[in-house]
Nucleic acid binder design. Structure first.
Lengths: 196, 196
DNA sequence: TTGCAAAGCGGAACGTTGTTCCGTATGTTT
DNA sequence: AAACATACGGAACAACGTTCCGCTTTGCAA
C-alpha cells in the first residue's frame, strides 16, 4: 500500500494542548481563506491567517489536499447521510437520485474551485479525490441501483463515473456567470432517464 | 479592449528568416511535447525540445496559452467547418448537434489536459478560452438553433454554456480509465432532447 | 517544584513553475 | 561593408508547494 495510514488516523488528536489548539485555529483559518480566496489559496495565506508558520500547517495536514478534506468533512458527511434519507422520502428513486445530485452539485459550486481540485489529476490531490469519492460513491451507487431496479434509468452506469461527471460540470461555475453549471447537471440527470 | 490585436495578428510572420524558422520549429516541438507530456508541459521542456531558449518561446507566443492555440488551430478550424456540413448531411438537426458534440469531445479527450486548461479560470488562459470558444460557439449556436426550431430540444440554451459543459465533462478523461467522459457527454446530449 | 526528553513551532531554504529582461549575436538593408 | 533593427539565450524574478532543522514549549516524572 502506498497510502500509509491515510484513512486510519488522518485527524488524530495531537498529544499536546497547543498542537490541538493550533489544529482548530488552522481549520478555522483555512475555512475563512477558502471562502475569501478559493480552495486554491496559497498555504502561506492560510498560515498567516492562523498566525502560524507554514511548517505548522504541514505538521497537521501533510498536504494541502488533506487540509481541504478536513475543512469540508462535515459537509461531505451530510451529503452522504442525505442519500438514504432521500431514498425514503421521495416518491421514486429517480427523483431521490436527482435531488441528491443537486445537493452534491450545490456543495461543489458554492466552494470556489473545489470542483476543479476534485477532478484534478495532480497526484497531490489523490487523498482529496479518494476521501470525497470513497465516502460518497457508495451512497450514489445505492441511489443509482434503486433507480435502475425501478426501471427508471438505463443499466450499467458506475457511481464513480456519474460523480466525476457532475463534479466536472461544476468546475469554474462561480467564476463565470455565463456558464450555468446547475443547468448542465440537470440536463445530465435528465439524460439518465431511460423510458426503456 | 483589453486584448490588443489578439485576433488580428496572432501569428504574424516574423520579418527575419531565422525567426520564421524558429516559429515552425517551436510549433513542432510543442506538438511533440504536448503529446508526450500533456498540454501542461513546462515551457522549458518545449524550449529544450526545440533547441532554443525560453525567451524565444515567449517572443513568438506571448503566453503558454497562445502556443496551445497555435498548435491546435487546424483542428479547431476543422471542428468549426464540420458544423454546417453535419447540418446538411444529417437527417435531423438534433442528430447533427449530437455528432458535432462528439467531434468536439473527441478533440478534447485526445489532447492530454486540454479540456482542463480550456475550462480553467486562470486569467493566463483567457486567450485560449476566447480563441476556442469564439470560433466554435457560433457554430454550435447554429446547430442548437436548428434543433430548437425543429422542436427537438428545449429553448434558451446558450451555445457557450453547452460547450463549457462538454469541455468540462472531458476534463481528466484520459488519465482516469474509470471515468468515461464520452458516455457522460452522450448523457448530456440525451438530456437535451425535449419530447415537447 | 524542578528537570528534561519529546512534541511542536517558525520560517528560511529548496525545487518547480510562468514570465521578464537585457547583453549579445545575427539577418537585412543601404 | 557598415549600420541598424531584429531576434536570441538564458540568467533572474516572483509565486507556489513542500521540506528541513534549530529553537521553544509542554507535560510527565522525580
Amino acid at each position: 500500500m502506498t497510502a500509509d495510514g491515510q484513512g486510519a488516523e488522518r485527524t488524530a488528536r495531537p498529544r499536546r494542548a497547543d498542537a490541538r489548539r493550533n489544529q482548530r485555529t488552522l481549520l478555522d483559518a483555512a475555512a475563512a481563506v477558502f471562502v475569501r480566496s478559493g480552495v486554491d489559496a496559497p498555504v502561506r495565506d492560510i498560515a498567516a491567517e492562523a498566525g502560524v508558520g507554514t511548517g505548522t500547517v504541514y505538521r497537521h495536514f501533510p498536504t494541502r489536499a488533506d487540509l481541504v478534506v478536513a475543512v469540508y468533512r462535515h459537509q461531505i458527511e451530510a451529503c452522504a447521510e442525505a442519500g438514504p434519507a432521500l431514498l425514503e422520502s421521495c416518491p421514486t428513486p429517480y427523483e431521490a437520485l436527482g435531488r441528491w445530485v443537486d445537493l452534491f452539485a450545490d456543495f461543489l459550486v458554492t466552494k470556489h474551485g473545489l470542483a476543479a481540485v476534485l477532478n484534478s489529476d495532480d497526484p497531490g490531490f489523490q487523498a482529496l479525490h479518494a476521501s470525497f469519492l470513497d465516502r460518497l460513491a457508495p451512497v450514489c451507487g445505492r441511489l443509482l441501483a434503486a433507480a435502475e431496479e425501478a426501471g427508471e434509468i438505463g443499466p450499467g452506469l458506475e457511481a464513480y463515473t456519474l460523480m466525476r461527471g457532475v463534479g466536472n460540470l461544476c468546475v469554474g461555475a462561480e467564476s463565470d456567470d455565463r456558464y450555468d453549471a446547475r443547468r448542465m447537471v440537470r440536463l445530465l440527470v435528465a439524460g439518465l432517464r431511460q423510458p426503456r
